[in-house]
């Protein structure tokens, strides 16, 4: 199957050099709506949804392939090969920061520059390393999902309604943005919050910019600093924004630091 359909790839812009935007856990390519347009003049902007998210082909979801982040990284590599991308820019938010790092380790020619927004190579504390969450807390999160005690009715909607022959019933409950199949969202949460990619960071050869929000409960500033320190060519910019999604809460600042970096 074409990666274009599988990942709902959208290519815009007039530039020669590609800039690939990858969304994080909990959303889809819509989350770049305030940032990506600013680069369409100078770049070939590539937007896509991870398999299982947004308008990707849900049928392409293979639990074995996406059991690890490397499965998502393989998708990125395949997509960029099909689009014939070399020496591009990869902008990854949240879990996609690590997916981009894994992709560039696997295929260094794809991207010469990485922008990692709110990255965390590991969410669970481990000895001296502070990921921000205890193992018990992440287990609570995953139990929360496994028990299907979903924290959001948008995802609960289709599960509860369970009425595939009358999708309009579910559609009212599901928001038009950031749709996700609840089963896949659960698996994606597991792979996201239990991953440990700390030892992949030193193998990233591309120039890398880490964008860190001042107050981010998901990826704390010390995690951003840790990422910078372990990257061979990493730099860190802390922006005056709160929350885990500065591309939505402070899109102008994000756009500005990316432009400066590239």
């Amino acid at each position: 199957m074409s990666v274009i359909k599988k990942n709902n790839v959208n290519v815009r812009g007039d530039g020669d050099r590609a800039m690939v935007f990858a969304h994080g856990f909990g959303c889809d390519q819509n989350m770049w709506r305030f940032v990506a347009p600013a680069f369409e003049q100078d770049f070939k902007v590539v937007l896509f949804d991870h398999v299982g998210c947004g308008k990707s082909d849900l049928a392409a979801y293979d639990p074995e392939r996406y059991f690890q982040l490397s499965g998502y990284a393989d998708d990125v590599v395949e997509m960029c090969r099909e689009l014939k991308i070399t020496n591009g820019v990869f902008v990854g938010h949240s879990v996609s920061a690590m997916i981009g790092a894994l992709a560039v380790v696997q295929a260094p020619d794809l991207f010469s520059d990485l922008v990692l927004i709110g990255p965390s190579p590991r969410y669970i504390d481990d000895g001296d390393y502070v990921g921000g969450f205890s193992e018990a807390q992440i287990e609570e999160l995953l139990d929360f999902l496994d028990d299907n005690h979903m924290g959001w009715s948008a995802a609960m909607g289709p599960v509860i309604m369970g009425n595939p022959e009358r999708p309009e019933l579910s559609a009212e409950l599901v928001d038009s943005f950031c749709r996700a199949d609840p089963e896949i969202a659960r698996a994606f949460a597991r792979v996201t919050f239990t991953s440990d990619n700390r030892d992949d960071l030193p193998r990233v050869t591309a120039r890398t910019l880490v964008i860190q929000c001042k107050e981010d409960v998901i990826a704390q500033q010390r995690v951003g600093e840790y990422v910078r320190d372990r990257l061979p060519r990493g730099e860190l910019v802390v922006i005056d924004a709160t929350g885990h999604c500065p591309n939505l809460s402070a899109p102008d600042k994000v756009t500005e630091v990316i432009k400066e970096f590239v």
């Binding site: 909990g26 959303c27 807390q137 999160l141 924290g151 959001w152 943005f177 998901i218 929350g243 999604c245």
Partner: peptide
């Protein structure tokens, strides 16, 4: 904690969009 994570990854972005 689960609510916190989902708020940050799902609802806060949704609210903004």
């Amino acid at each position: 904690v689960p609510g916190k994570i989902f708020h940050e990854t799902h609802f806060a972005p949704l609210l903004r969009m």
